[in-house]
Design a protein around this nucleic acid. Structure first.
Lengths: 333, 333
DNA sequence: GTGAAAGCGCTAACAG
DNA sequence: CTGTTAGCGCTTTCAC
């Protein structure tokens, strides 16, 4: 039988109300003597307050739900770490959910988080999501959308990065370094980041009056396997290019593998730029030139924003768009 | 005001007990008619049962605490994924805690998890931990220790890998391939895996009557920076070697950087073997020969074991030691 | 300064 | 088949 506040009260010869007050530091009107006595008993007995009981009354669980596609995707661990740091700093903990970009898993997660009465949700929408499911519309819990935007979803806030600008900068850099036949290997075109990176690519090409057509923008998904496959196909199909701007680093890795296999020299013959700057980018050989996303900060800021929204209980949507930075390494001349 | 079971009862014209039964599928004795009526109302109102309230009674939160050093360390995401998969399969969710291998953070995490009344804890002990803190001794919650063993900690189960055998196999392979002056770059010697990998290294060297002394076993920590620094120092100090067995892949990555910098040819002049087989190992160039740990399985099995232990409420310690496999790639001849 | 009492939303006997 | 009742462990007025 676990020890409860009742025992502590009995043992210290005070009421449970008093014990509750000292536990929660609402003890301005409790004499030091009783305070110390209660504290001592608590320590001695190893009493642990039951937060699920207090949650019932305070209506907060000090828990935040974190819904992401897959923690094993190297993009997310840092984001999660940032989120966890800010959360624990503020006395919250994180429930982690993986959705594999599958809509039904997403809905299950959200439902579960609602039942567990989390105080807020950080949500990276499935890149496959087009329509918003009904059930998602009436979650009565603050939601911050992370990384990806969902039009129509009633979120209370949004943390994204400057995808257009990041892509623009990357492609512009490529052009400045003398590359001119630049192709773009993208992720699923249903997701906002993908669309935005394509937009940035086009803008840069246009700005420099460089030609491109639909065959230069090749859709895949955000995996190295996809990068490998699409690159392979591009080469086979006789497409000419001297640089490739990849939708993310994973695609870039696969792409480079394919390039190497075909004996193409990275940097001299073909420049490659990634997006994300995952841990891997710095570790591979050659080190990958890429657009760095502030992953840790994204998680951190997302929780920060969520906490704000939760506090104010306001309706207004908040938004923060974080900057990317081009990191030039060894896959571009 | 959030809608409660009471409203549903009123709206469907039944008692709350009945509603409770249909929610929890204890409805064998409820007529289909009432069942359907209640279900319909639930759907219409968008009622979400409050699991924190039911937790108070059932004494279970369907939540598991996952305590790891750092999710941003590439070893852990897959472990966590495995754990999450098994957990969600069984209707549980995971609260994630990062400890940075700091004992005080560990204790905070554990305390918080206790207060949140998690049903069990998965725990990767700090590699710096030598003594078990008092507070950890009387957690009344089942604990499974993951990856690292903690002597003296009253855990109900243990999931580890065959570190000795893995190291033995790696070093033996190196020897078989003609390397003979093999050094070992280790992690912190306070942690069990480190000790075991050293043991495996020694066993293999002994088995083949190859000489080594203390200077061949160089302690560092499990980071690429450490791998770089220790390798650098080893080279500077004039240590001779033709292969290096690294305590993990991160060390191997740093080590290879240092080797390359000094113009040493990987594979021909110096063979390198890592440990873990993180995602990176396959992505780098040259691809890393390494001892693969079943990371996903570790997490999965850990939750499985925890669930078992929780179910039986037995005292006996359970243990599962998973196999490693040597993956030969491009850093060994 | 401290305590009594009224619940939070739900489940689990037990009655009917 | 369904409802009544007694809490789960805690916080929070409101008295004293």
């Amino acid at each position: 039988m676990k020890i409860t506040i009742k025992e502590i009260a009995k043992l210290s010869g005070v009421s449970i109300a008093t014990v509750s007050k000292v536990i929660n530091r609402k003890d301005s009107k409790i004499s030091d003597e009783t305070k110390n006595r209660v504290m001592k008993i608590i320590k001695e007995t190893g009493y642990v307050p039951n937060r699920v009981a207090s949650s019932m009354i305070t209506k907060e669980t000090k828990t935040i739900g974190l819904v992401i596609p897959n923690i094993a995707n190297p993009f997310f661990p840092e984001v999660v770490r940032g989120a966890e740091d800010k959360a624990s700093e503020a006395g919250y903990s994180l429930i982690l959910c993986n959705t594999d970009d599958q809509i039904d898993k997403e809905e299950n997660c959200i439902a579960m988080l609602q039942e567990k009465m989390v105080d807020g949700i950080l949500y990276t929408a499935s890149s496959r999501r087009h329509a918003i499911s009904e059930s998602l519309k009436h979650v009565g819990i603050p939601i911050i959308s992370l990384d990806r935007d969902i039009v129509g979803l009633p979120v209370q806030g949004k943390i994204t990065v400057e995808n257009v600008e990041g892509a623009f900068e990357a492609v512009s850099y490529l052009i400045k370094r003398g590359y001119s036949k630049i192709i773009h290997l993208t992720g699923p075109e249903t997701s906002t980041p993908t669309k935005q990176r394509i937009e940035g690519y086009k803008k840069a090409m246009d700005a420099h009056h460089l030609p491109y057509d639909d065959s230069c923008i090749i859709e895949g998904d955000y995996t190295s396997a996809s990068g490998y496959a699409t690159m392979e196909k591009a080469i086979r199909s006789g497409l000419t290019f001297d640089a490739v701007f990849c939708g993310n680093d994973l695609i870039a890795i696969g792409c480079i593998k394919a390039l190497k296999k075909h004996g193409l020299k990275i940097l001299e013959e073909v420049g490659v730029v990634g997006f994300d700057d995952i841990y891997l980018a710095r570790m591979m050989d050659p080190e990958l030139t890429t657009v760095s996303q502030p992953k840790y900060l994204m998680g951190y800021k997302a929780v920060e924003l969520l906490l704000e929204v939760m506090g104010e209980n306001k309706e207004g949507r908040r938004e923060e768009i974080l900057k990317t930075t081009l990191v030039v390494r060894e896959t571009t001349r």
